[in-house]
Write a protein that binds this DNA or RNA. Structure first.
Length: 596
RNA sequence: GGGGGCGUAGUUAAGUUGGUUAUAACGCCGGCCUGUCACGCCGGAGGCCGCGAGUUCGAGUCUCGUCGCUCCCGCCA
C-alpha cells in the first residue's frame, strides 16, 4: 500500500491503529479495527468513535457515498468489534476536535465488517463515572478497557522495561528462581502447595526469592535481578495483595553505599522515563533512630515538618501524675505542634483522640496557645518552669495547638506519628505533587517480642550486623544495628534490603540468638549454611515493591489500580471465582482429607 | 479475630419524623434527524430497595443476623 504513514502495526485486519492518523495521512486509504466507543446517528450521516489501545478515530458513514456500509452503521452498538476501510479525509472547517490525537482527520468508510457483536456491557467503557469495585472486578476484562487501567498497565510495562534496560546496562542478569519451594520459619504465613508425589509434604510459594538470590551470589553470578511474583498469606490492605511483584536484586562485593547509589540511578531512570521528573538523587538518609525520634515511624513522610518533640527532660521531675507514672515505667512523653491549630473545636480535638486510640494510645493531651493564655485541661498541673520549658521545646506561638501522647515508646511514637500524618493530610500541609525520597538506615538487628519472650529479626535472619556492633551480639542484642536500609517515598516503604551474612559462623550465632536451634537451622537452612561455607562472596541486595511503586508513580490510592487481575480484600477473585473447591479425586491424589 | 463505611432500575446516585403508584441522570429499546464528537428531539421498557428474621396497622427507612465490596487495627521478618 502506497502512503506516507505506514504503520509498524499493520496486519491482516488493519493498516493502522486508531491512535496514529493525522493530517499527514490525508488521502491514504486505510483499514482500521477496533471497538465501537460511541456512535452518533444523525439519520443521514453516522459517526462512530472507533477505539483501540492507541486511541480513538472518528469514522464516518455517509449514505450517499457508501449506502451499504451506512445501512450497517445503523445497527452498530457499544463495544461491537469492527473492521472499517476507507479514505482518510480532513475534517470540514470548524469540526476539528482538538481533544483527540486524531482530531484533524476522519475516515470516510467505504466498507465495514462487523467482526463481533457485543452484549450491552454492565457499565460504560468511559471514565465519566466511578463504578463499584465489585462490578469492576467481576468484569475485569471490561474494566481493563477503560482508560485509567489501560494507562496503568501500559505504564507498568514501560517501568519494567526501563528497569530491565537499566539493570542490563549495569551488568545484571535476570535469573528465574523456583516458585515451588520450601517453607521457612519466621516471616509471613506461607501459601502451601501439596505434593502429589510426596504425600503429606508441601511446597511453599516464595515470600521472596531471598535464599535463592544469595545462592546465586555463591555461584558467582555477581549481579542478579528478577521481576518476580511473591506470595504472603496475610490479610490484605489497600497496598497489600497476597501475590505481588518485587523487583528483586542481589550484588556481590558491595557495601550499602554501592547498592544505594545504583538503585537511586534506577529509580531516577524510572521517573525520568515515565513522566520526566527528576527525583533528586542522591536521596537524603536518616537513621532508624532519628526517624522514630522525629517522625515516630520507620517510614517517614518528609514532605512536611511538624516533628515529634521528646519532652522527657521538660517533665523529668513533673508531679503531674499521668506523666509521672509513664516516665517511671520507662515510658516517654512526646508532643507535636500544629501551627495555627488553636482554632480547632473541642469536637475536632476529640476526633484526634479517636485517631491515636487506634494505635493504642489511651489519651491525647492538648494545649491551645490562645492570645489570652494557654487553654488546656492539664496545664494547671504544671510548674511555671515546666510551662516555660515546654513552650520553648515545642516552639509554641500564639494560635498553635500542642498535642501530647505519653505511653510506652512504641505506642507514643506510632500514635503521634500517625496523628502527624493525619493532621498533615487534614490540614493540607502536604504538597501532593512532591516526591520525597529518603533512605532509612541503621535498623536494629533484633526486636524483643513481648508475646513470645524472644528476639525476632527486624529484617530477616540473614541480615549482617554492622561490623562495630558485632561484639554486642552476645550481651546486648537489642543494641546491634544492621547493615539494612529501606527506601521510603512520601511515607511509604517502597523497597528494603541489607548486606547479608556471608560467614557461616556469624550466621550460626544469629540463628542461636533468634532461638533457632542447630537442628532447626540445619533442617530449614542447611543448604544455605553449606553454601556459605564454600566460599561465599560478601553480598547484599534489595527488593522493591513494584505495585507500590506504580501506585505512587500514578497517584492511585490502591495497588489494585495497577494490577491487571487483583484479588478482593478477602483474597478472592470475583472474575474466576478462585479459590474454589476441588474434586474428591484431586484431594485423594494429594492424600488430603477435609475436616467436617 | 476486632472496629468503621457502603449495598435502592444495567450504571451512578436521591429517597424527609416509618405513610398513597420508590425518583433522577446516564445507559437500554423504538421513532425522527446529513456534521456530530457527553449530538439533539419524541416515546417506551426496566426494581427481590443485597439476603433472612424481627418491631409495627404499615419498613427502602428502625432492630438483629447474614452475605458481598471497602478502609483500618491485629497480622504482614
Amino acid at each position: 500500500m502506497e502512503n506516507n504513514t505506514a504503520s509498524r502495526l499493520a496486519a491482516a485486519y488493519r493498516t493502522h491503529t486508531c491512535g496514529e492518523l493525522g493530517a499527514a495521512a490525508v488521502g491514504s486509504r486505510v483499514r482500521l479495527s477496533g471497538w465501537v466507543q460511541n456512535w452518533r446517528d444523525h439519520g443521514g450521516v453516522v459517526f462512530i468513535d472507533l477505539r483501540d489501545r492507541y486511541g480513538l478515530t472518528q469514522v464516518v458513514f455517509n449514505p450517499e457515498k457508501a449506502p451499504q456500509a451506512h445501512a450497517t452503521a445503523h445497527t452498530l452498538r457499544s463495544e461491537f468489534v469492527l473492521e472499517v476501510e476507507g479514505e482518510v479525509v480532513p475534517r470540514p472547517e470548524g469540526t476539528v476536535n482538538p481533544n483527540l490525537k486524531t482530531g484533524e482527520i476522519e475516515v470516510m468508510v467505504e466498507e465495514v465488517k462487523i467482526l463481533n457483536r457485543a452484549k450491552t456491557p454492565p457499565f460504560m467503557i468511559d471514565e465519566t463515572k466511578e463504578i463499584g469495585e465489585n462490578l469492576r472486578l467481576q468484569y475485569r476484562y471490561l474494566d481493563l478497557r477503560r482508560q485509567p487501567l489501560q494507562e496503568a498497565i501500559i505504564t507498568r510495562h514501560r517501568v519494567t522495561k526501563i528497569i530491565r534496560d537499566y539493570l542490563d546496562e549495569q551488568a545484571f542478569l535476570e535469573i528465574e528462581t523456583p516458585v515451588l519451594t520450601k517453607s521457612t520459619p519466621e516471616g509471613a504465613r506461607d501459601y502451601l502447595v501439596p505434593s502429589r508425589t510426596n504425600p503429606g509434604n508441601f511446597f511453599a510459594l516464595p515470600q521472596s526469592p531471598q535464599l535463592f538470590k544469595q545462592l546465586l551470589m555463591v555461584s558467582g553470578f555477581d549481579r542478579y535481578f528478577q521481576i518476580v511474583k511473591c506470595f504472603r498469606d496475610e490479610d490484605l490492605r489497600a497496598d497489600r495483595q497476597p501475590e505481588f511483584t518485587q523487583i528483586d536484586m542481589e550484588f556481590s562485593f558491595v557495601e550499602p553505599d554501592d547498592i544505594l547509589g545504583l538503585v537511586e540511578g534506577m529509580i531516577d531512570a524510572v521517573f525520568k522515563g515515565v513522566n520526566g521528573i527528576d527525583t533528586g538523587a542522591p536521596y537524603s538518609r536518616i537513621t532508624y533512630a532519628e526517624a522514630l525520634d522525629k517522625y515516630g515511624l520507620d517510614a517517614p513522610d518528609t514532605r512536611f515538618g511538624m516533628h515529634l518533640v521528646d519532652l522527657g527532660e521538660v517533665f523529668a521531675s513533673t508531679s503531674f501524675k499521668v506523666f509521672r507514672s509513664v516516665l517511671d515505667k520507662q515510658g516517654i512523653i512526646k508532643g507535636i505542634n500544629l501551627k495555627g491549630g488553636a482554632r480547632l473545636s473541642r469536637k475536632e480535638i476529640d476526633d484526634l483522640l479517636e485517631v491515636v486510640k487506634i494505635y493504642g494510645a489511651k489519651g491525647l493531651a492538648w494545649i491551645k496557645i490562645n492570645e489570652d493564655g494557654w487553654q488546656s485541661p492539664i496545664v494547671k498541673f504544671f510548674e511555671e518552669a515546666e510551662i516555660k520549658a515546654l513552650g520553648e521545646a515545642m516552639g509554641a506561638e500564639t494560635g498553635d495547638l500542642l498535642l501530647f501522647v505519653a505511653d510506652k515508646p512504641s505506642i507514643t511514637n506510632e500514635a503521634l506519628g500517625r496523628l502527624r500524618l493525619h493532621l498533615g493530610e487534614k490540614m493540607g500541609l502536604i504538597d501532593e505533587n512532591q516526591l520525597a525520597f529518603c533512605w532509612v538506615v541503621d535498623f536494629p538487628m533484633f526486636e524483643w517480642d513481648e508475646q513470645d519472650k524472644r528476639y525476632v529479626a527486624i529484617h530477616h535472619p540473614f541480615t549482617a550486623p554492622r561490623d562495630e556492633d558485632l561484639d554486642k551480639l552476645a550481651d546486648d542484642p537489642g543494641a546491634v544495628r544492621a547493615k539494612a536500609y529501606d527506601l521510603v517515598l512520601n511515607g511509604i516503604e517502597i523497597g528494603g534490603g541489607s548486606i547479608r551474612i556471608h560467614d557461616p559462623e556469624v550466621q550460626a550465632r544469629v540463628f542461636s540468638l533468634l532461638n533457632i536451634s542447630d537442628e532447626e537451622a540445619q533442617e530449614k537452612f542447611g543448604f544455605l549454611l553449606d553454601a556459605l561455607s564454600f566460599g561465599a562472596p560478601p553480598h547484599g541486595g534489595i527488593a522493591f515493591g513494584l505495585d507500590r511503586l506504580m501506585m505512587l508513580l500514578l497517584g492511585r490510592n490502591s495497588i489494585r489500580e495497577v494490577i491487571a487481575f487483583p484479588k478482593t480484600q478477602k483474597a478472592t477473585c470475583l472474575m474466576t471465582g478462585a479459590p474454589n473447591t476441588v474434586s474428591p479425586k484431586q484431594l485423594r491424589e494429594l492424600g488430603i482429607k477435609l475436616k467436617g
